[in-house]
Every structure is written in C-alpha cells, then in structure tokens.
C-alpha cells in the first residue's frame, strides 16, 4: 500500500519535472520539424496562405543546377576541411600531451577562436585575403583573388574554418589521449618501438573512439557551414554559386528571396544528406575504431 503510493508520487514528480522540457521540445522542435516537412510540399512564401503543390519543390530542386552545385560545395567543403583539420588537431593534441612547459598557454591560444563569433573571425580573414591590400598577398608577394576566384573562394573559406576549429578538436582529442594508460607506452619502449611506431600502434588505436566522435561532429558541422560563407562571400560575389553551401542556399531561398516552401525542401534534403554521411561513417567505423581496450 505504502509502496504504490510512493511510486505514484514518484511518477507525479517525474512527469512534473520533465514537463517544461518536453512541452518546450514539442512546441519548439517536434512540431516545427513536422511543419517543415509539410511546408516542403507547399508554395509557402514570405507571408500569407499557401497551397499544397505536391512534389513541385523537390522536382524543381533536383532539376536545379544551383542546388546540385550547392550540394557538391557542401561535400567538397567537408573534403577540404575534415581530413586536414583532423590531422592538424591530432598532431596538436599529441604535442600538447607531451612533457613540455607552457601547455596551458598554448591550449588557451589555440582554443581562442572558439569563443569569438565566426562573424568577427570571417571579417578579419576577409581583410587579410583582400586581393589588393591584404596582408596574405603582400607576404606571399602574389596577387591572387582569394575570395572572388570561383575555384579558390571555397578553399579560402575552408582555411578559415580549419583555423577556427583546430584548437577545439585538439582539446577533445587531448582528453582522449590522456586516458591512454602510460604502461602501454612503457611496454612499447621496452620492445624498442620508436615514437612514430608508438603513435601508429598504441596512440591511434587507443584514441580511435574519440577520433571517431570528433570526425562525426566535424563532418556534421562542415555539412551545415553557413556563417563563414555568409560573411566572406556576399550576394554580388562572382564566386557565390561555386562556393555557397546548402545552408547558405537555404538561407537565401527562405529568408532573402522568401520561398519558404522551396527552402524547406532544401533543408529536408540536407538532413537526409547528413543522415547518409553519418550512416556511412558508422558503417565504416567497424574497420578502424577500436572499442576493445
């Protein structure tokens, strides 16, 4: 008797305590998610009522070269940023994990871009990349249109993205490295393994679960890149079409041009794409991620 009463009150407290979060999620996320799916089948504009138009938005999307270019740009941006960014972050983490002085200072410096808004970061890089007066062309003694050349602009954006995230990724990897038992290195030392052998045969397998998590996170955020491009590549930039990511296209279609139906279709596609890429990663991880130890 007493126990059922206790259970009842426990359940009441349970519902009461999760209520704000669950109601909030339903209103702010679950319902909007369903709404976006519905909107993608309508001709919704900036304001006013709209009609169902079936698959029109998706047909238009899959026939649009701008859309396919944006899809490729998003994937290309991942190819440009993820491997290089992760390798640099891993190197940085290994260095920060060695017995050196001033680790705290180095860590703080590399982490700094994390607390600066990408808008401010993009602003200064845009200035440094300036083709006429930028410090980068001046130092290199070149005259390159870093931000207006259609082939280069996306690479320049990738450089800024890697610069911004390398410290953050390194801090995450560092916490993985610190969990590798010292005894493994001592054993490897006794076996006469060089530092480089130790890295590939001890460090890498041991840190692979953290590495996998960081790669997934970096892939997702690269596929969703928006703010750096929005700031560095303006509407009138000749490199816009060859640079804009899906999220940039989504923003322009939904909130600049104002076709919310079409914009919704783009964002639904982006979610599908992220799902595919993530699934591929989880499928591929069996070959290299080591959860045994």
């Amino acid at each position: 008797m007493k126990k059922t009463k206790l259970l009842n009150s426990e359940a009441k407290w349970g519902y009461g305590l999760v209520a704000p979060t669950i109601i909030g999620l339903l209103i702010l996320n679950i319902w909007p998610f369903i709404q976006t799916l519905i909107l993608s089948f309508t001709n919704a504009k900036k304001f006013g009522s709209y009609d169902f138009v079936g698959l029109t938005n998706y047909v238009r999307m899959f026939q649009s070269t701008e859309f396919w270019q944006a899809t490729w740009n998003s994937i290309y941006f991942c190819i440009l940023t993820v491997p290089v960014g992760i390798i640099l972050a891993l190197l940085l983490a290994v260095f920060l994990n060695s017995k050196i002085k001033g680790k705290v200072v180095f860590r703080a410096i590399y982490f700094l871009p994390m607390v600066v808004a990408p808008v401010a970061v993009a602003m200064v890089w845009k200035w440094m990349f300036n083709s006429n007066y930028g410090i980068i062309n001046d130092v290199l003694g070149l005259h390159i249109d870093w931000l207006t050349n259609p082939h280069l602009a996306i690479v320049s954006c990738a450089v800024v993205s890697i610069w911004s995230s390398v410290g953050y990724d390194a801090v995450l990897l560092l916490s993985g490295l610190q969990n590798v038992p010292k005894t493994l290195y001592e054993a490897a030392d006794l076996d006469g393994a060089t530092k480089i052998q130790q890295f590939f045969h001890v460090t890498l397998p041991m840190v692979s679960p953290t590495l996998f998590m960081v790669i997934i996170m970096r892939l997702m955020s690269s596929l969703k890149v928006y703010d750096i491009m929005y700031m560095m590549i303006s509407e009138s930039n000749p490199a816009l079409l060859d640079t804009q990511s899906l999220m940039y296209l989504f923003y322009r279609e939904s909130f600049v041009i104002g076709s919310k139906g079409y914009g919704s279709a783009i964002v639904v596609w982006t979610v599908v794409l992220i799902g595919i890429v993530t699934a591929l990663q989880f499928w591929g991880q069996k070959k290299w991620v080591n959860y045994d130890v």
């Binding site: 996320n29 909007p32 709404q35 976006t36 928006y226 939904s254 914009g263």
Partner: peptide, 8 residues
C-alpha cells in the same frame, strides 16, 4: 540540425 526548425 537546428536549421530544420527555423522556418516554423
């Protein structure tokens, strides 16, 4: 991703 909620 948060963008899927933004329009609604």
């Amino acid at each position: 991703p948060s963008q899927i909620f933004i329009i609604p």
